[in-house]
């Protein structure tokens, strides 16, 4: 069973966010809650449906992740781009923010 996290875009500003352990939404995939079994995936999916119904987020979807250096990282290119920013503009998106900020939200 693959390891998954729940990604979405925040309704109000479209920011890419991931569901956290605490039940909030972080703009860092490193803070994402991960689930490795069917029951956990179903829970994540259910939270996504509810958060969508509550007009907090849109496009909620499970994504494949793996742990690297102790934090979840998306395995697919599209989701890595979502987590970092455009590969052609390294000065933009989450990848452009200072490392300290990355650690702080993780």
């Amino acid at each position: 069973m693959s390891l998954k996290a729940l990604k979405a875009n925040r309704l109000i500003d479209g920011e890419a966010v991931w569901l956290t352990e605490a039940g909030g939404w972080s703009d860092r995939v490193s803070a994402a809650r991960t689930e490795g079994d069917a029951e956990g995936h179903a829970t994540l999916e259910q939270i996504g449906v509810q958060a969508t119904a509550d007009s907090l987020v849109v496009n909620a979807e499970l994504i494949d992740v793996e742990f690297r250096d102790g934090a979840p990282v998306p395995t697919k290119l599209k989701e890595r781009i979502r987590a970092l920013g455009p590969t052609v503009r390294l000065d933009l998106g989450k990848q452009s923010e200072p490392k300290s900020r990355l650690q702080e939200v993780a």
Partner: peptide, 26 residues
């Protein structure tokens, strides 16, 4: 939409008719 009076399914065609997409980053 923000007040939750409209679902995304109802809103999406309206925002698209005003050129507003939801993409990967924003």
């Amino acid at each position: 939409r923000v007040a939750g009076e409209m679902t995304e399914d109802e809103f999406k065609p309206l925002r698209l008719m005003n050129g507003l997409y939801l993409q990967i980053h924003a």
